[in-house]
Write a protein that binds this DNA or RNA. Structure first.
Length: 897
RNA sequence: GGGCGAUUAGCUCAGUUGGUUAGAGCGCUGGUCUCACAUACCAGAGGUCACUGGUUCGACUCCAGUAUCGCCCACCA
């Protein structure tokens, strides 16, 4: 049967381009809700439609796809729910930028036309990121993809808003929110990034007035980092029990530059020690001051508008100035009046908009909020009682702490792109209506003059519903919802535990009564080589698509998986992808070797699913295979896919390639005996195909390619195999405990030990690898008995021309001791006696130290009496074995003279 | 100010419930272009597990404290 020739090294690009479309055509990714299979569901964190693939996806998609493929092969109806996020602010920014290029603003277009442009943009560019994800091999059923602004999720958002409103959990009110003067919108606490900045603390003197309103000459000094806000001050606060400021109680002061007379109030939020002990109060521009204002019924004067400019409430000369321009002006004017008494350098944290980095203005405005307290308790309970488990577990602390301190969530955004708030106002009577369907008449006065709230909802207001709205909720009878919800696994970085994970739990419990997912796999963050976050501004990002092109998607997946050790951030450099490329090539080479054998010997009844253990090497590799299967499953179960892959790597590279393949070569090359050739090849193919199945979830392209060559190689036989066409649809190898044998592995370890000892002698004595050596083994008969049937393994692996068990000692000889067996190499004339002596002496020293240690331990009465019996017994065994080895070493030393 | 994480070989990191005089990859040294693979093979060097106490028969592992680094949270006017 003719076979396609394989490339000399693995070339991933062509392979990957071939298999992805084929999988999609074959429907390999399709969900099967009717199959009767149990569901396994992961909800893919929906990328923004403005998103570009970055290494965070490289990491997280790899983890998710690996689990999806693993579970699919394990017989689950694996559903990786894909979707995309409309990304309110980000998208609106992009579209507005595009408009600016045309010399337009969104206001020029008007709301409707603007939204049309936004949809156009979404339709044109919104799928780029999912196209990129395909390059990684993501095996999602893309037909199921959902967009946050699709009718389904939109209906769900509205349902949820109305539900919460009816329950009193959504309310509107005037509060201090984080305002971005560039986005012209409120944002939530979680969308503000704080950064320590060097600033100033300006000390300003406010003249004190007497009862008649005349200046007493006394001044109160307050300190501020934002002098421009003083224009909106409506009080000065002191601590009620502070002696330092007691004399100011009940006084009034005149606000400089403005002239307003404002009271001194007493409030214990003031820190007595800090600064002068006096605080200026600006209720409209500071959250603390706002609270104080509520307590003391103070006027709230907004002096900055939504664009960051001073408004009509500021004195005329400042009106229209930008807030920072105004700051300068205010300072200059205070200085001129002699009221600026001190300027200190001051380090303080400044909030910035996470979307555009503009400095946030705490700003009083009317917004919609979610009352979160009632949602927190159930969310905490779900983790506390184990319905949800974090991996690693310590992230539950972060989750808990955040929830415990959660403040109400500002959900209204002054944007156009997003889910419009379903609140309607009657223009005639002012009645407010919050409804599931758009009202046409006012339910209070019957007027038809109705206006919808201008604002849209925070993007996260649709995201927090994602695990169930993607599956059809609020239609709780939807097949997908019933079959796939609650989902099984959530994979994400620790940076969005607050923004997303905890909110999904709250929402899910409130609206479905169920947890959204059972396990949360928290990955580290991908950093650059120096541990810095990858960012555009630093230019230190590594583009996953470039890496796919240079090293192959499987290599990227391999490296991201293997580097993803629990709880650690990943320090990434391009070089790290060589790990994956090299391993892919190693697997390829192993297959090339099998591929170039004569497969016609397999006969017509060959069944690749059957092991064929004929001799020790076969039994050993099967035992190792099944030990590996067991380990892989266990590590998957404890959410350590890196260790699963490590185990597979070691099995293939260090065990299959380094030992098994080397050992079956003589059998494969046996011209005389076709049966021997067949058995060796059959078992090797059996083991190798199992290994490909194990590896498939991690490296799908490579393994699929190899399987296709196996299929081709088997010709008509291929069709008879119990597996389908696509490797990815195969069953995962099942563990067979019967094939795991510690006794077999122990025997093989002796072979390995002796082989290494001989190679070591070769290296130390600088004997060319080509030069055959004469070997004699001396030792206990049971050990020699074990070796008897497989001594050809050793002579083959170490190139021994003769190999005697229990023969006469050659003199002079290089010697090594392995597990009580003397490994002696006749090296007449060639031996470097000094090197040999040095090596033996070193070994002697090591053993003596070892023995002393154990003897000390065993000499300790408390150890013997208190340690478990088996531990003591093990120590005794170790001691005996070491003593035996030491004796032999000493004997060999004396033989050297 | 509070919390979390890290500290193990030159580098990047493993080390499962305390019981091996500590493991891997990369790098390094020496030897091999051996008919699957130099993106490889063979052999080897290299660590008082940050520090100090404690618990224990026994600590890289558990406890307390210290130091250094990193991250998160917080209403430092």
């Amino acid at each position: 049967m003719p076979r396609t020739e394989l490339t000399r090294t693995y070339e991933p690009n062509a392979v990957e381009a071939r298999w992805y479309p084929w999988w999609e055509e074959q429907g390999c990714f399709h969900i099967q809700p009717d199959s009767g299979k149990p569901a396994f569901t992961i909800n893919m964190p929906p990328p923004n439609i403005t998103g570009q693939l970055h290494m965070g996806h490289g990491l997280q998609d790899t983890v998710q796809d690996t689990y999806i493929r693993y579970k699919r092969m394990k017989g689950f109806d694996a559903h990786w729910q894909a979707g995309k996020d409309h990304a309110g602010i980000a998208t609106q920014n992009v579209v507005e930028k595009m408009l600016r290029g045309e010399g337009l603003t969104r206001h020029d277009l008007g709301r409707e036309a603007f939204l049309e442009r936004a949809w156009e943009w979404r339709n044109k560019y919104g799928d780029i990121i999912t196209e990129q994800k395909r390059k990684l091999g993501d095996s999602a059923d893309w037909r199921q993809e959902v967009f946050t602004m699709d009718p389904g999720p939109s209906r769900a958002v509205r349902e949820v808003f109305v539900h919460l409103y009816e329950k009193g959990l959504v309310y509107q009110g005037d509060y201090i929110i984080n305002w971005c003067p560039r986005c012209h919108s409120a944002i939530s606490n979680e969308e503000v990034n704080y950064e320590d900045r060097a600033g100033h603390l300006w000390h300003i003197a406010y003249p004190v007035l007497d009862a008649s309103g005349a200046p007493t000459g006394e001044k109160i000094v307050v300190a501020t980092t934002r002098p421009e806000t003083m224009l909106g001050d409506t009080a000065i606060a002191i601590h009620p029990e502070s002696e330092r400021t007691a004399h100011l109680k009940g006084k009034r002061v005149q606000l400089p530059l403005v002239g307003r007379v404002i009271p001194v109030i007493e409030d214990d939020f003031v820190d007595r020690e800090f600064g002068t002990g006096c605080v200026k109060i600006t209720p409209a521009h500071d959250p603390n001051d706002f609270e104080a204002g509520v307590r003391h019924n103070l006027e709230r004067i907004l002096v900055i508008d939504g664009t960051g400019k001073m408004n009509v409430n500021a004195p005329a000369k400042y009106q229209g100035m930008d807030r920072y321009e105004c700051r300068k002006a205010v300072l200059a004017d205070l200085e001129a009046e002699g009221l600026l008494v001190k300027i200190d350098d001051h380090q303080h944290s400044v909030g910035q908009c996470s979307r555009c980095d503009t400095i946030i203005e705490p700003w009083l405005s009317k917004q919609w909020f979610v009352k979160v307290k009632p949602l927190v308790g159930p969310a905490l309970a779900a983790v506390a009682d184990g319905r949800i488990t974090f991996h690693p577990a310590h992230w539950a602390n972060v989750y808990n702490r955040w929830l415990e301190n959660l403040r109400d969530w500002c959900i209204s955004r002054q944007l156009w792109w997003g889910h419009r708030i379903p609140v309607f106002y009657c223009e005639d009577c002012g009645a407010m209506m919050v409804t599931r369907e758009d009202p046409t008449v006012c339910d209070t006065c019957g007027s038809t003059d109705i206006r919808q709230d201008e604002d849209v909802l925070d993007t996260w207001f649709s995201s927090w519903l994602w695990p169930f709205t993607t599956l059809g909720w609020p239609d709780v009878d939807a097949q997908k919802f019933k079959h796939y919800f609650p989902t099984d696994l959530m994979v994400t970085g620790y940076d969005i535990i607050f923004l997303w994970v905890s909110r999904m739990v709250m929402a899910s419990l409130e609206f479905t009564g169920e947890v959204p997912f059972r396990d949360v796999f928290i990955t580290g963050i991908v950093k650059d080589e120096q541990g810095r976050k990858m960012s555009k501004s630093l230019g230190n990002g590594i583009d996953p698509l470039d890496m796919v092109k240079s090293y192959g998607a499987d290599a990227v997946r391999y490296s991201m998986t293997i580097l993803n050790t629990e709880g650690q951030d990943i320090k990434l450099s391009e070089q790290k992808f060589e790990l994956g490329r090299n391993f892919a090539n190693k697997v390829w080479q192993a297959f090339r070797f099998l591929h170039m054998q004569d497969w016609s010997v397999l006969g017509t009844d060959f069944d690749v699913s059957q092991p064929r253990p004929i001799e020790l090497a076969d039994e050993w590799i099967l035992s190792r295979l099944h030990s590996t299967i067991k380990a892989v499953d266990q590590h998957f179960d404890r959410y350590r896919p890196n260790e699963s892959l490590q185990a597979i790597h070691e099995f293939i590279w260090s065990e299959f390639c380094d030992w098994y393949v080397e050992l079956i070569k003589p059998r494969l090359y046996d011209k005389e005996d076709e049966g021997r050739r067949r058995d060796a090849l059959a078992n090797a193919l059996h083991v190798f195909t199992r290994a490909m199945q194990l590896l498939h979830p991690f490296m799908p392209f490579l393994t699929e390619e190899i399987w296709s060559h196996i299929r081709e190689g088997l010709g008509e036989l291929g069709a008879k195999q119990p597996w389908g066409d696509a490797l990815m649809m195969h069953d995962y190898p099942e563990l067979s405990d019967a094939l795991v044998s510690e006794e077999v592995e122990a025997r093989f370890r002796l072979v390995q030990g002796i082989t290494v000892a001989l190679r070591n002698i070769r290296a130390e004595q600088q004997v060319s690898p080509k030069q055959p050596i004469k070997v004699v083994l001396q030792g206990p008969s049971e050990k020699l008995g074990v070796l008897e049937p497989v001594k050809h393994y050793v002579s083959q692996l170490a190139l021994a021309e003769s190999f005697e068990l229990g023969g006469e000692r050659p003199r002079p000889a290089a010697a090594n001791v392995v597990d009580g067996v003397d490994v002696l190499v006749a090296l007449a004339g060639l031996i470097d006696l000094d090197a040999e002596r040095a090596r033996l002496q070193k070994e002697q020293q090591r053993l003596s130290g070892f023995i002393t240690g154990i003897e000390k331990k065993l000499g300790n009465e408390s150890f013997v009496s208190r340690a478990p019996e088996e531990v003591v017994a093990k120590e005794r065994e170790k001691l005996d074995a070491a003593k035996l080895d030491l004796e032999r070493i000493q004997h060999n030393l004396s033989e050297l003279g």
